[in-house]
Design a protein around this nucleic acid. Structure first.
Lengths: 269, 269
DNA sequence: CGCCAGCTTGACTAAAGTCAATCGGCGTGG
DNA sequence: CCACGCCGATTGACTTTAGTCAAGCTGGCG
């Protein structure tokens, strides 16, 4: 499953991330590098864009963590997704003219905006990369169902346990080290609360509780998973990052049969 | 914007729904009818499928309401989305081999399963319909952001107000009557609670409260919106159903330029 | 060394959940 | 036609969970 990487690919989280899921040829790698051509450096706490902005680009995260959030006019805030290096951000907003979320850094970060039209290039040159892009967008949708369940029906400790396992699971893929048990979380407890739907104070208490139970250890911003099975049981976590099915797109599913040989990506208007 | 409909299309909610957003040609209508060829009738409270089922189909809702829900093993349940006639259900699950949600009826309903490969047919024959299918999937994703904000950061009355406005907004599109102010909600208060993340008892109280404030009127399962502006202000509702941008797909965005004339939908493996 | 952001803790408040009793409509069967 | 039973809504009383406010505390950094 894992592609052989060239030396120069080692610094691209995007390539590393994608090559976990599909084999990448030279052309594929070249295309991914093109997505990362433009770099924008952002300090901690800066916005990449805001809700309502006229968005012509998607973004690749090159370094640092960011998050997307939505807010109410009285200051209440809900973080919707945390983005790691190698993530592609902004797919859902393709459907609307203006950004529906705010994108902001957790720490200093570099993002790579690329124009929507690059998606077409992907289709033309690297259908398997296009398939992965689309499939990752669908998976984001599925993962959001877990978030909805978390916010609607889970207790504070369950939420926190879920968040920890989710972050670790993603970092394992991104780092290539599937045994990873520790991470630095560059979020303060107010931000964590905005992510899991709690107040900063309650985040502190819930953290203490699962630490006291021996499920995790903490030191500053570092969190170490000590009892993964118990965390899973507590939070009903299911790892959705291990596998991904791009076949629906390339072959339109296992049940794809028949001729359909004259298929064509629609021409621009 | 609205296509001229043939007499025989009047009974297809799918056609009515889609023709709100794009002009449908004869071929398009034919394709949509094909998606509704197979019919499955389901009584109230029956599952169309369950989490873990091996899904080879997507589904069109022909009549009745259904909902998708996820659950915890101790019985807690979270309804993720309510589906109306004319909705296409199951796009996100394309990315995974097995269903991630349960699909169940609110009332007796007819659904039309269609195989994944029909998506390919859509691409080949009706790119604008394919574009709309994809774009609707992306919009579902965006709407889920509203749900996340609702569950994470909104009060009981805000949640209920939001739900009412959301349902009305969708029924307006589906019915073609944009002035609609009343609806029958075929959900009991336990189900409503599972949708907005509250207990059945608290749903009752919140309903009473916004009714006492004159924002709505109720009679049995019927709800009438009395003060829409106030409901909007209370719930921070933004109507995402009025417009939809399929251009990103057909032309890959307004910024689509350049040749890209040899583009082709990837061949099946 | 002192400041400041952010974490922790305690005391109190507010919101929502739970339990239980009651009510009311509706369909069924006598 | 009426009695019964059931489901679901409502209401009250009480509990639990989480939020708020405020006071320390700590560790990094200028």
């Amino acid at each position: 499953m894992r592609a052989t990487l060239h030396m120069t690919d080692a610094d691209s989280c995007l390539v590393r991330n994608f090559s976990y899921y599909i084999d990448l040829g030279e052309e594929d790698v070249a295309l991914l590098h093109e997505l990362e051509e433009q770099e924008v450096a952002l300090e901690r706490g800066k916005h990449a864009y805001r809700r309502g902005d006229d968005l012509r680009c998607l973004h690749v995260v090159k370094t640092g963590w960011l998050y997307s959030y939505v807010d109410l006019d009285d200051g209440r805030r809900q973080i919707v997704k945390i983005h790691h290096p190698g993530d592609v951000v902004g797919f859902p907003d393709l459907a609307v003219p203006r950004a529906t979320v705010n994108l902001m850094t957790c720490e200093s970060a570099i993002v790579c905006p690329f124009p929507r039209r690059a998606l077409r290039a992907a289709f033309d040159r690297c259908p398997n990369v296009a398939a992965l892009l689309f499939t990752l967008a669908l998976r984001d949708h599925i993962i959001m169902l877990d978030t909805i369940r978390l916010l609607g029906r889970m207790t504070a400790r369950e939420r926190l346990a879920f968040m920890i396992l989710d972050l670790i699971a993603r970092l394992r893929i991104a780092s290539g080290d599937l045994t990873l048990r520790s991470m630095q979380i560059p979020l303060n407890q107010t931000e964590i609360g905005d992510y899991v739907g709690l107040s900063n104070v309650h985040v502190s208490r819930a953290f203490k509780a699962i630490e006291a139970a021996g499920l995790i250890e903490r030191e500053g911003k570092a969190v170490t998973v000590m009892m993964e099975n118990e965390l899973c049981a507590l939070s009903h976590f299911e790892n959705r990052y291990l596998t991904l099915d791009t076949g629906w797109f390339l072959g339109i599913g296992a049940d794809a049969v028949g001729p359909a040989s004259n298929s064509a990506w629609p021409k621009p208007a």
